[in-house]
Simulated assay, not measured.
Amino acid sequence: MSNPKISVTMPCYNCEDTVGRALDSLLDQTVEDFEVVAVDDGSTDGTAGVLRDYARRDDRIRPVLADHGGVVAAANTAMEAATGEYVVRMDADDESLPERLEHQAALMDDDSALGLVGCRVRFGGCRKRCAGYAHYVDWTNTLLDHEAISLNRFVEFPVPNPSIMFRRSMLEEHGGYRDGDFPEDYELLLRWLERGVRMAKADAELLVWNDPPTRLSRNHPKYDVDAFYRIKTRYLARWLERNNPHHPVVHILGAGRTSRKRADLLKGYGVEFAAYYDLDPRKIGHRVHGIPVLSRDEVPGPGRGFCLSYVATRGARRDIADFLDGRGCALGRDYLPVA
């Protein structure tokens, strides 16, 4: 079809068992003005045949056959081939609920300042076996407006990649996915936010985000915890330079080994630590590489220092936010959660 309003881009690799359901979910949308650019990334199974079969049945399906280059190359190839005003990302093992494209496009139509929109997602895995992933989904579903997305960007990826829709002009202005030793979807989001792209989410579950054991985020080192902290630290350091009135000095909440290891990455960018803060009396009063470990009650008040919370224990982020808010500190002005 010519000049569709929406282009759904879908990298596909050895997904013959799931891509049909993904395509069916798109063909069941409440709007019809879209295309699906499905890039077969050199699959060795029957993926290409499935794509060809769907293309014969519906000319909105546009298969692109490519040599195997990985998900970044396939995603960028799909986006470069997209012709719609709005570009959508979707994975070949997920399912879009019927009103996804309609609701997300309506958000973009109604607010010309928005460059990217997501949606709340439905966790498609086993909540008992994959509790960490499920809790992450629950957390990201609470971040709906630009301020919440922006101020929580350094905790984790606040807008799941398969849920996004963005204006094609954003791609032209800020570039697509970059390849490297980091999660390309998180890097794109951090880069676009840094450049001022406004984001929001539809307040509805519009995507089933499945969690198969073969998902790249479970199996490739570029998506492991260390990779996330490397890329987030790079962008966090630049954010602090622009927004921390006490730059380059910060106060670190969390004195445990893991918290210190992750915070210490900032030192490579010239950030200085005034102190660590903790609740554990066994740590309080000691020094770590010359930096004092103080009681949480000694955290500076509003306007007296900028705090970064590196405590990642479940529930601790909310507890620390409540503590700092109770002292009159403001999120984004006096502190940020970064774990």
Rank of each mutant, 00 (worst) to 15 (best):
P158G: 05
W139H: 12
G115K: 10
H286P: 05
V71T: 09
N152V: 02
G46T: 15
D319Q: 15
D24P: 05
A106L: 14
A22R: 02
K5W: 02
I291D: 06
C12T: 00
G326A: 08
R89M: 13
A92Y: 03
V71G: 03
E147W: 00
A263H: 00
T18Y: 12
V50K: 11
D280A: 09
L101M: 02
A275W: 01
G20K: 05
D53R: 13
V19M: 04
H246C: 06
L27T: 11
H135T: 13
G175M: 05
H146P: 10
R62Q: 11
Q104A: 01
D138M: 09
F182C: 08
I291S: 01
K5Y: 02
A105Q: 13
D41I: 01
T83D: 14
R191A: 12
L216P: 04
R296G: 10
I6S: 04
G270T: 05
D94Q: 07
G290M: 00
N76V: 08
D33T: 05
R262L: 13
V293E: 04
A22D: 08
G124C: 08
G125A: 06
Y136V: 13
P4Y: 00
V88L: 11
E95C: 15
H247I: 01
Y13C: 06
A92M: 02
V88G: 08
S7Q: 04
F306G: 07
V271S: 10
S25E: 07
G196I: 06
D297T: 01
L207C: 07
